[in-house]
Simulated assay, not measured.
Amino acid sequence: MTTVSSPLAGRVIGLDAVPDPVFSGAMVGPGTAIDPLREPSDALSPVDGVIVSLHPHAFVVVDDEGRGILTHLGVDTVQLNGEGFELLVGKGDSVSRGQAVVRWNPASIEEAGKSPVCPVIALEATAEALSELVHNGDVVAGDTLFNWK
């Protein structure tokens, strides 16, 4: 089982509240989403693993069991071309749960006209594979969002 931790502090809102049909429809995979605090912060790795995909606005960490977890920093933030994001690790790096991966400021993302809501997705998983999935409530970075059985 893989425990997936929150990469950010904020309010969990669930995937169905993400203002993007690909995420809200769980087309990428099941998971949940966080409406982050509007302050500069580091997005943390939700699991121990290896960074297999790294963009300023999104990253995927694959754990020892080969499970990929996507953290997407905001919606449509790819359109910002990396502005407002600072990469703190490199693709192929091993990371520990809670290690800073990307520095960003959700308030500046919102000021740029984008939603700062952050989906956290279990890639290539089924909804039935997730347990103890958090759909609402306040979280701090490092709190458990779900378990992947």
Rank of each mutant, 00 (worst) to 15 (best):
1 M>F: 10
3 T>N: 08
3 T>W: 01
3 T>V: 14
3 T>L: 13
3 T>E: 15
4 V>T: 03
7 P>G: 04
7 P>E: 06
8 L>M: 09
9 A>L: 02
11 R>C: 02
12 V>Q: 01
15 L>D: 04
16 D>N: 13
18 V>A: 07
19 P>K: 08
20 D>K: 09
21 P>S: 12
22 V>H: 05
28 V>C: 08
28 V>S: 10
29 G>R: 02
30 P>C: 05
30 P>D: 11
31 G>Q: 03
34 I>K: 02
34 I>D: 01
34 I>V: 14
35 D>W: 01
35 D>S: 14
38 R>Y: 06
39 E>P: 00
39 E>N: 04
41 S>C: 15
43 A>M: 08
47 V>S: 06
48 D>R: 09
49 G>Y: 03
49 G>S: 08
51 I>Q: 02
54 L>E: 11
55 H>P: 00
57 H>L: 04
58 A>L: 11
65 E>I: 00
66 G>L: 13
69 I>P: 00
70 L>A: 07
72 H>L: 10
72 H>Q: 13
76 D>A: 09
77 T>F: 07
80 L>F: 06
83 E>W: 08
84 G>S: 07
86 E>Q: 15
89 V>Q: 12
91 K>H: 14
92 G>K: 10
94 S>K: 15
95 V>R: 06
102 V>I: 15
103 R>H: 15
103 R>F: 14
105 N>R: 05
105 N>S: 12
106 P>Q: 08
111 E>L: 12
112 A>Q: 11
112 A>F: 02
113 G>S: 07
114 K>S: 03
118 C>T: 15
118 C>Q: 01
122 A>T: 04
123 L>G: 05
130 L>D: 01
131 S>T: 14
133 L>Y: 08
133 L>I: 15
133 L>M: 11
134 V>C: 09
137 G>T: 03
139 V>C: 09
141 A>F: 07
142 G>T: 03
142 G>Y: 10
143 D>W: 11
143 D>P: 09
143 D>L: 10
145 L>N: 01
146 F>G: 00
146 F>M: 03
146 F>K: 00
147 N>I: 00
147 N>Y: 06
147 N>R: 14
